[in-house]
């Protein structure tokens, strides 16, 4: 069984993102970039399937600039078998990514596609769902547990108010939540071995996809700083403020 995993190069989760002075976006110059943490979880899940004998090949895909090959290389060092980089320098919106992934799915014919539920840069949370729609495949999003069976996969999902388990007939789409697993470290011997694993380079045009953005970012701004609170000296004063100033009771 072949598993396709999508990995995105994003600003590292430890970096304090700063808005560019002209408000045109986030300043990414000289900023540490890493694999989207949800995608690391997706890679880890695929590797665990392979280790359990339930998957035979893992293909890691990224859509992004040349440097996104580093992100793929990280997936290869963790244990993926080969990579596909779809090179594109500008922003790519979720629909365009989903269309590219559909093109790759058509060519690679995987039984399962695992994606992070969202990327921590724009938090769109759309690509997996759009890909499922484009392929007309069943989807299990926000997975906190994934159990493979012969021709289906059971996905336990984190939903408001609890957990829901859905059973999807393969081929299917799964998107990962934070509690699905804890991604492994890439050991140094595996980092060295990953050098020899192949990464194919493609372009969006190879899949007939126009990546021109359909949305326009008007302005990016820092959230307003929180103002200091006030101390009240009695419960009566608190109730008075809640009633008359905050208007919440």
């Amino acid at each position: 069984m072949k598993v396709l995993v999508a990995v995105k190069r994003v600003i590292d989760f430890n970096v304090k993102a700063r808005v560019k002075p002209d408000g045109s976006g986030i300043d990414l110059a000289n900023v540490k970039m890493s694999m989207n943490p949800f995608d690391e979880i997706a890679v880890e899940e695929a590797i665990r399937m392979k280790e359990a004998g339930k998957a035979t090949e893992i293909v890691a895909v990224s859509v992004g600039p040349q440097q996104a090959s580093e992100t793929i290389r990280t997936a290869l060092a963790m244990g993926a078998d080969r990579g596909i980089l779809v090179k594109n320098d500008g922003p790519v919106e979720p629909l365009a990514v989903a269309k590219i992934l559909k093109g790759i799915v058509d060519a690679e014919k995987p039984n399962l596609v695992i994606l992070g539920k969202q990327a921590i840069d724009d938090d769109s949370n759309q690509t997996g769902q759009m890909l499922a729609a484009l392929l007309n495949w069943p989807q299990g999003t926000f997975a906190s547990k994934v159990a493979m069976e012969a021709d289906s996969v059971s996905v336990t999902r984190e939903i408001d108010g609890g957990l829901q388990t859905v059973k999807l007939k393969l081929p299917a789409i799964v998107t990962t939540d934070l509690r699905l697993n804890e991604p492994r470290y890439a050991s140094l011997p595996n980092i060295m071995k990953a050098k020899k694993k192949p990464i194919d380079e493609k372009t969006p045009a190879d899949y007939g996809v126009d990546v021109a953005p359909r949305l326009k970012v008007v302005k990016t701004a820092e959230p307003a700083g929180r103002k200091a609170g006030v101390k009240v000296d009695s419960v009566a004063a608190l109730v008075d403020k809640l009633k008359n100033e905050a208007g919440v009771i």
Partner: peptide, 14 residues
């Protein structure tokens, strides 16, 4: 090299 940088990322995470 890229391998050095990957080593750096893994040690930092550790």
């Amino acid at each position: 090299s890229e391998e050095h940088e990957q080593l750096r990322a893994q040690v930092r995470r550790f």
